[in-house]
Design a protein around this nucleic acid. Structure first.
Lengths: 175, 175
DNA sequence: CTGAACTTTCAGTATATATTGAAAATACAA
DNA sequence: TTGTATTTTCAATATATACTGAAAGTTCAG
């Protein structure tokens, strides 16, 4: 029966997406389960409960709970409540542009800023030292800091723009 | 004595950079030792040998060797030979713009392209399926793929440009 | 209140990843 | 060749990270 084949094909593709997304995520410093839950919810037609996620990915309650909170903390998931039910249901932000903006801003806040603090501190500590080695070290810290500041600033501007305004600009610039 | 204080301050700043770079790197899916070796060489006034790196970071020969090869594989280090010596000395690329370009292109090749392949495969597999769920899944895969393709394309263009040509453009755009 | 529905926590355990160090392989001067 | 300096490999081990599941905590309808 064609309907069953189609349903099976959809399931296969979705499983493949969830599984591969988990693999790729580890290369980007994101834990496997978190990425899989995100992939599951990103492709779920309706919000899912903890129990449904446990069943779909075959993982424990504690694991699901921890990673759901983390994803909510990133702002990638919304909690939905159904009338007359106490259970929480989770729904992923599905707009790709919004997902990008959320991740860009959160990484900025959580990782880029601490890195910049270290670079600035190292640059300051050596600002007044004499001698080739100290001056060269200071220059390296300053250059790195300046670069990261520019890159982060560009990312920030992009992620604060309206997609419809910024994307044409980027395309035009890169033509 | 001031000279000693200065030397000590430089050492402190450098140690702090190396140590913190190692911490930050793990958030980006790069292993700690690899980042520390890179930080060490980035701030070394001259190329260093395996033994010198072992001594500076207090780590084993095998570990140093593995991570040096990996860094050479990324193109972030050059191997230098001294006349009359058999030992290899390692020198880091110090131009921040070049470092950025190397990392951008390597991550593109190693991680973005495989991810794109999965997205495209999932989109294709479900292209002809009927029904709301299948169509919605297909759209998600397509949107994600399109977005990653654009972002990677922009990154590629930037990293292939002359720094002096692209940076002013970016700044102008973001003014 | 009480108790059932649900969520959170966390000690114990499992898994994945990184590191060691010594042996094997390689390179090369004599 | 042969001996020595150097690099590479890899089994054993250590460490970091993720996961489980049950117990404790919370919430709320009745």
């Amino acid at each position: 029966m064609t309907t069953e084949t189609h349903a099976a094909e959809l399931r296969t593709a979705r499983d493949r997406f969830i599984s591969q997304w988990g693999v790729i995520s580890t290369a980007w410093g994101i834990n496997r389960t978190m990425a899989q839950i995100h992939a599951l919810l990103l492709t779920a037609p309706t919000p899912l409960s903890t129990d449904e996620i446990m069943a779909a990915l075959q993982i424990s309650r504690g694991n699901v709970n921890t990673n759901l909170r983390e994803l909510v903390g990133w702002g990638l998931l919304r909690i939905m409540l159904r009338k007359g039910e106490r259970k929480e249901y989770f729904e992923a932000e599905k707009d790709v542009w919004k997902i990008f903006c959320i991740i860009a801003r959160e990484r900025q806040r959580r990782e880029i800023e601490p890195a910049l603090a270290v670079l600035r501190e190292c640059a300051e500590r050596t600002a007044k030292l004499k001698g080739g080695e100290a001056e060269s070290f200071h220059r390296t810290m300053r250059d790195l800091g300046d670069f990261v500041t520019s890159a982060a600033g560009a990312m920030d501007k992009v992620s604060r723009s309206e997609r419809s305004k910024i994307m044409p600009l980027i395309f035009k610039m890169l033509k």
